[in-house]
Design a protein around this nucleic acid. Sequence first.
DNA 1: TGCTCATATGCTAATATAGTCATAATAGAA
DNA 2: TTCTATTATGACTATATTAGCATATGAGCA
Lengths: 105, 105
Amino acid sequence: MDLAADLLRVLGHPLRLKIVEFLRPGERCVCEIVPAVGAEQSVVSKHLALLRHVGVVACRKEGPRVIYWVRDPAAFTICDLAREVVSRRLAELAELAAKVRAVKG
Amino acid sequence: MDLAADLLRVLGHPLRLKIVEFLRPGERCVCEIVPAVGAEQSVVSKHLALLRHVGVVACRKEGPRVIYWVRDPAAFTICDLAREVVSRRLAELAELAAKVRAVKG
DNA sequence: TGCTCATATGCTAATATAGTCATAATAGAA
DNA sequence: TTCTATTATGACTATATTAGCATATGAGCA
């Protein structure tokens, strides 16, 4: 399904991943997200829009503020799994490097 | 971690998702992958290279053929979760549409 | 109303990505 | 060696994505 690809592609950006991570403990205002991820306000706003479009996050207005949260906790699981895959791969590479050193030295 | 974002971004392409799905039952030769996903050989080769670079798949040569497989089964779980998120979202939208129709009609 | 804070959107330039076509590289067979 | 089959790579074009800046929108307050 193409929509699944869209979801993964949208999650596949460092800043958006950072935003999703920051929302893990619970909902947050944009004014909290912006300093937390260390990017310009307009940039964060656009990334939030992308995350909204694919349904990863939702938002509501509260006075002048906008509060965002992650709709589906499975999004966190996806992030966790991605990190697991990466760290297993890094561990393999480290092991391989150690073997190479053992043969050389 | 940026590498996790890379992984998700690479998985986030319809054709690459299709390739990963096709490899779910087990390893396959490029000459099987190409017709299965219905894309040009050079295109498939480049997408396989991307999947290799982020460590989703690995390959070995067998005579003139190259056999690919998915390194880490967690990649399948990521695909499954992405589809789950999408289908839950679609179900929500359908439910919402039904409510709208109920109010209107 | 006029002002300020918070957020979103338009526009532009830089960069990245994807597909197409041609060709290179490699292995095996004749 | 020459031919063929299989896969990978390079050049090019088209399109998409991203960030930065300016500005619009909208809510609440003076």
